[in-house]
Design a binder for these strands. Structure first.
Length: 302
DNA sequence: AGAAGGCCCTGCGTGC
DNA sequence: TGCACGCAGGGCCTTC
């Protein structure tokens, strides 16, 4: 093996290793499966103890967080965009965001330095007591207490666009949101005001599925391609949620980690690898973030 | 209003 | 073996 091909081989090996160990960023599907996993432990459960191990994540924890949750019963769990919501039998709900590295750990063998908020549930006739730890190494996440009746008006929620899996995310909505916009479609789909819940991974995957270049000006996408894009966004999210539900029994991995699952991506993190169309996956930086795409099946011209 | 860039933060891979 | 560095990016912020 010559030096050149040897280097290529090693580079390919390094990529394969990177891919297999790639961090799953919590986007909409990860938050959704996290909530489904938490439901079994939290819905109807009373919070017996709360431990707050540090004053803040990205922002300070709300004042009186532990007192607000201690003794409360979780009445329901809900997702909005990439936020998870724990409703209680009290006025306020707890809203969490997992940021880049956030996760809930179920009954961890031992608590680590990144387990910042720990909820312990009371045992019930048909449920053992459980320990739920919100772990977030990079601390890009957040926790808030918001009056349930005021959630829709809460500033971070009020600014959000429609849910991509909901009835309001239509080709017409997207056409209106993109009209006149010259920014790359990749950047615009990350704007939570246009559609709420997409992150870098699923934007790359959806554009690939819709055969649209991430570099296309948002306002230039009309008609059939636009409808294709709406459908592709729905499909990649739905399939990811299904993967999270089917590959992991009750959504929890053996180590008790929720929300992360093995899902094969077509382009994300696959620079230099073959696309199924026969082309090759490329990478570029848009808005300071990596975009992965295949120039062969996602041409810039329509 | 839209576009562009910076900031926060830690773990990991890489190169020396 | 260790150390420095670059990279990952969601939401929010400032500047133009």
């Amino acid at each position: 093996m010559g030096a050149k091909s040897g280097n290529r081989f090693l580079a390919g090996l390094a990529r394969a290793v990177r891919r297999s160990t790639a961090r799953r960023m919590p986007e909409l599907p990860e938050v959704e499966t996290t909530l489904r996993g938490l439901t079994r432990y939290l819905e109807g459960a009373r919070i017996a103890r709360v431990r707050v191990n540090r004053p803040d994540l990205r922002r300070p924890f709300p004042e009186g967080l532990a007192q607000a949750l201690t003794g409360a019963t979780i009445t329901g769990l809900e997702r909005r965009a990439k936020y998870g919501i724990l409703h209680t039998d009290r006025a306020r709900s707890m809203v969490f965001h997992l940021g880049m590295s956030g996760r809930w750990r179920i009954n961890p063998d031992e608590l680590g330095k990144h387990d910042h908020l720990i909820l312990e549930t009371e045992a019930r006739p048909d449920h053992a007591a459980a320990v739920l730890a919100l772990n977030d190494a990079r601390r890009f996440g957040s926790v808030d207490l918001i009056d349930r009746d005021a959630l829709a008006a809460w500033a971070p929620f009020a600014a959000l666009g429609p849910e991509p899996l909901g009835p309001d995310f239509t080709p017409r909505h997207l056409a209106e949101a993109l009209a006149g916009r010259i920014s790359p479609i990749k950047v615009l789909l990350l704007d939570q005001r246009i559609v709420a819940g997409l992150g870098n991974i699923y934007v790359c995957e959806a554009l690939h599925r819709a055969r649209l270049s991430p570099a296309r000006a948002g306002g230039s996408i009309l008609g059939k391609p636009l409808a294709r894009l709406v459908a592709a966004i729905r499909e990649v999210l739905t399939e990811a949620i299904e993967a999270g539900g089917s590959t992991i029994r009750d959504y929890a991995q053996p180590n008790g980690e929720l929300g992360y699952f093995a899902k094969q991506w077509q382009v994300y993190g696959r620079e230099g690898e073959p696309c199924h169309c026969g082309g090759a996956v490329s990478r570029m930086v848009q808005g300071g973030r990596s975009s992965f795409w295949c120039a062969a099946c996602q041409p810039e011209s329509v």
